[in-house]
């Protein structure tokens, strides 16, 4: 390996034996510092030492979901940012793009995720879902149908569901603040 050794740059001594901060942790740390949560969102860390698992609470201050408080769980694996974060809504809510299991249909959480995107892009996307529920990408087909065919009826259903009421026999979580 002629010449290679002499070219070795002045690199500092690397830590040995001890566990090192992982690449995923480094990236999440950076992403967390760049979050702009505003007044409608806050985070919650059940275990503050584990920054790869946390909750995000969204309190929309306008739109049809105003007055509600929605909780999402973020689970990030060691393959982040190659893999997107896994995001689930932990409440049973009535929303065309979120199913009753809490799965979220947001393009950047799946097919359009790229390592250049960050956690801020994801939380902005989530917030947008509450301002502009999208009937053309339905995950809860009935809710999407309601939104498409009868916007006023859909609004009423949103209010009913947020109060913990039932729609077509399905009971929803009470999410009003």
């Amino acid at each position: 390996m002629l010449k290679i050794w002499s070219m070795q740059a002045e690199t500092a001594q690397a830590g040995q034996k001890k566990k090192k901060v992982t690449a995923a942790q480094l990236r999440v740390q950076k992403d967390l510092s760049e979050l702009s949560l505003g007044s409608t969102m806050r985070t919650e860390f059940p275990n503050p030492d584990d920054i790869l698992n946390f909750n995000l609470i969204i309190d929309p201050d306008e739109g049809m979901y105003k007055g509600g408080s929605f909780l999402f769980h973020f689970a990030i694996n060691q393959n982040f940012p190659h893999d997107p974060p896994k995001v689930k809504c932990t409440q049973t809510i009535y929303h065309p793009n979120i199913d009753l299991e809490g799965n979220v249909c947001l393009n950047i959480l799946r097919e359009d995720w790229k390592p250049v995107l960050n956690l801020n892009a994801v939380i902005v996307g989530l917030q947008f879902l509450f301002l502009e529920p999208n009937a053309s990408d339905p995950l809860n087909k009935e809710a999407a149908e309601d939104l498409k065919s009868n916007r006023e009826g859909f609004k009423r259903n949103v209010r009913t569901s947020m109060g913990g009421g039932s729609i077509r026999g399905q009971t929803f979580a009470r999410v009003l603040k």
Binding site: N103, C105, N107, R110, E111, W113, P138, A144
Partner: peptide, 11 residues
């Protein structure tokens, strides 16, 4: 990894 939108799968 190629992925299909969740809503396509669901509906």
């Amino acid at each position: 990894r190629a992925a299909v939108p969740l809503c396509t799968l669901a509906t």
